[in-house]
């Protein structure tokens, strides 16, 4: 569509350019700034004298003899045992994604193939559950978990996150399965497959693009969760996000904000890599729900 009449007038071009530059700055600068600052000492990151110190690391040079320092990372990962939280996060994410995808593909497939009224209501109820703020459910869990001694363990958090994930996973996979032609599994069933065999041999081989996209969002939900993990896990089993929140309480008084800064950068880095590799899937996933309007 490169027609002459479509060309923008100069003023508009400049405006768009300025606007985009401004937005890029707003979106990316805070992260770059924090990444850069995490290798400085606190006196530079929060500079009373001159904000430019954070760039040149004046005090860092005075205190450590070098322009960059790994003190924050050392303090967070080793001294405050952030590695343990990272390990817990890996476990939680791995299991949440696997389990919720298993449950979600089965359910989403059935919902996309059923023409009965109850399938519609199932989806509507799932939508209502999706709207519940997770923290409202937590006060329902706590007394039961205390009584049965389930509180504080990783498996408990995993199964709770799987359940909270389900409504979203079902909706997303339901719309993906809708796009897989129904003739595919029906012809397999005509050939004598049971419903499950048709699913196993015909649908599973073609469903991976949708499953990967949904898996990314399940991962994000488990990785980013604060409300549930902060309330349900004990000190030993904390994942990274509640751990950072606990840094804020304890270490700020000790003057170790830099631990929190280093931890924040450590949490952001995997997400950065993830967007780099899966940008296309994330974009298609965000729009998948919208297509239905």
């Amino acid at each position: 569509m490169s027609i002459k009449a479509q060309e923008k007038p100069l003023g508009l071009k400049v405006f768009v350019l300025v606007f985009l530059t401004l937005w890029m700055f707003l979106a990316a600068f805070p992260f770059l700034w924090t990444l850069w600052g995490s290798f400085k000492v606190e006196g530079d990151f929060f500079s009373k004298a001159d904000w430019a110190n954070a760039i040149f690391g004046t005090l860092t040079q005075v205190e450590t003899g070098d322009r960059f320092t790994g003190q924050g990372y050392h303090g967070a990962w080793i001294q405050e045992e952030f590695w343990r939280a990272a390990l817990n996060t890996v476990l939680v994410c791995l299991f949440v994604v696997t389990i919720s995808l298993t449950f979600g593909t089965l359910g989403g497939y059935a919902l996309s193939r059923s023409t009965y009224r109850y399938a519609f209501w199932f989806l509507i109820i799932a939508l209502i559950f999706r709207a519940m703020p997770p923290i409202t459910l937590v006060s329902g869990y706590l007394p039961v978990f205390f009584q049965w001694n389930l509180w504080g363990h990783l498996p408990t958090a995993i199964i709770v996150l799987v359940a909270i994930n389900q409504p979203f996973t079902l909706w997303m996979l339901h719309s993906f399965f809708k796009n897989i032609p129904q003739d595919l599994d029906e012809s397999a069933m005509v050939d004598g497959c049971t419903r499950f065999q048709a699913f196993r041999h015909v649908i599973i081989p073609v469903m991976w693009p949708g499953v990967i996209t949904t898996g990314l969002f399940s991962f994000l939900l488990a990785y980013n969760d604060f409300a549930v993990t902060a309330m349900i896990l004990d000190q030993q089993n904390q994942t990274m996000v509640p751990k950072i929140a606990s840094f804020l309480g304890t270490t700020q008084t000790k003057g170790n904000v830099m631990f929190a800064v280093a931890a924040v950068v450590s949490v952001t880095a995997p997400l950065f890599v993830m967007i780099m590799f899966f940008q296309r899937q994330i974009v298609s996933g965000l729009t998948a729900g919208a297509v239905k309007g």
Partner: peptide, 16 residues
């Protein structure tokens, strides 16, 4: 770059 503010953990993004 536009995706960053949304994908990054809310607690972490707001701390930054």
């Amino acid at each position: 770059f536009s995706l960053l503010p949304m994908i990054v953990t809310p607690l972490v993004g707001s701390l930054i």
